[in-house]
């Protein structure tokens, strides 16, 4: 007996299992980053002085990274739209672009990190850098996780398209939801850490 509603939607909820699963997962992610944001606010308001982000961090690089991540969100949603139009070739191009842009983001982040370590500003330097490394580090792990899943759907996972295109499109949509969420977190991280 196969598990129902993996592909088709259940009539009364109007959803398939994967869609509910990914949204529940994102709900827990909201609480994860929410706790870190709350900690950030608490530590910042409790400290006598707090550095402006741009005195310690590289705003142009981060602005570039913001643009990279937003662009990757668009390519992600375009990858899904290509599948909806049943254009597998276009899907591969957009999905490939999404993964590459994620990669660019990580490389830029690597340069930012290594610069900080080179001048001895590690996470233990002060609480601003502590929360900076924790938040961006956790966010980078999410970017990496999203890239792994996307790479799977770009490569070996794409076999499913041949046998069940609807299911494959759904799975890409769900992986996209996660990717957009990662983008969304960055949209909040960028001003809070770099600009304020």
């Amino acid at each position: 007996m196969d598990i129902p509603y993996t592909v088709e939607v259940r009539r009364d909820t109007g959803l398939n299992n994967g869609k509910i699963g990914i949204w529940l997962f994102l709900a827990s992610e909201v609480m994860l980053f929410g706790a870190l944001f709350a900690s950030y606010i608490l530590i910042r308001t409790g400290s006598p002085s707090w550095p402006r982000g741009d005195t310690l961090l590289d705003v142009p690089l981060a602005t570039f990274n913001t643009i990279v991540l937003i662009t990757s969100s668009v390519t992600m949603v375009m990858a899904w739209a290509s599948l909806m139009r049943r254009k597998f070739g276009t899907f591969r191009i957009y999905m490939g672009a999404t993964i590459l842009l994620g990669f660019v983001f990580l490389i830029v982040k690597y340069f930012e990190y290594s610069h900080h370590f080179a001048i001895g500003e590690g996470p233990s330097h002060n609480n601003f850098l502590a929360i900076y490394f924790t938040l961006t580090g956790l966010h980078m792990l999410h970017v990496f996780g999203g890239m792994v899943v996307n790479a799977y759907f770009w490569g070996p996972g794409a076999k499913l398209y041949q046998t069940n295109p609807v299911w494959f499109t759904n799975r890409v949509e769900h992986s996209g939801l996660f990717w957009h969420f990662v983008d969304l977190v960055w949209i909040f991280l960028f001003p809070t850490l770099y600009l304020l």
Binding site: G14, W23, A27, S73, D183, I187, P191, T192, L195
Partner: peptide
Amino acid sequence: ALFVALVKGSLVAGYFMHLVSEKRLIYAV
């Protein structure tokens, strides 16, 4: 800054994540 971020976030959630036309169950969660 938070207002701008909120607008940007809402755009991502609303259009890229299709929240503008999602099912009631997702809204409830």
